[in-house]
């Protein structure tokens, strides 16, 4: 049976549904009998619920317009032409 330490290492993957069914069955059995690991599992689930409930911040119209303004200025910038120095060939033609 899976140990508490082993479970603590893979609990994130278990919650994300990324483990094989065999391992998941073992974990469920462990959680059913181990109050500490059950508590840990519940806390991780609650943590993720917090994240999902955490509201998405919408930007204001002013912020959007400021953003479009800087992109517009970028668009208006003249193209920079890089003047690369001419490579001087080291080989000299020998007559």
């Amino acid at each position: 049976m899976i140990s508490c330490y082993q479970l603590s290492q893979i609990i994130s993957e278990f919650i994300d549904g990324e483990l094989s069914e065999d391992v998941c069955v073992e974990i469920r059995q462990h959680i059913a009998f181990c109050p500490d690991c059950r508590r840990e599992h519940e806390q991780f689930l609650k943590l993720l619920t917090f994240f999902h409930c955490n509201c998405m911040i919408q930007i204001t119209e002013t912020t959007h317009l400021e953003l479009m303004q800087v992109i517009f200025e970028e668009f208006e910038k003249p193209l920079k032409i890089e003047h690369k120095p001419r490579k001087i060939s080291k080989k000299r033609k020998t007559s």
Binding site: M56, I57, Q58, I59, H64, L67, M68, I71, F75
Partner: peptide, 17 residues
């Protein structure tokens, strides 16, 4: 540029977040 602006509108909130 209109296409780029549409991309901005689609993702500005997520990028800001």
């Amino acid at each position: 540029t209109a296409a780029f602006e549409e991309l901005v509108k689609r993702y500005e909130h997520k990028v800001y977040n």
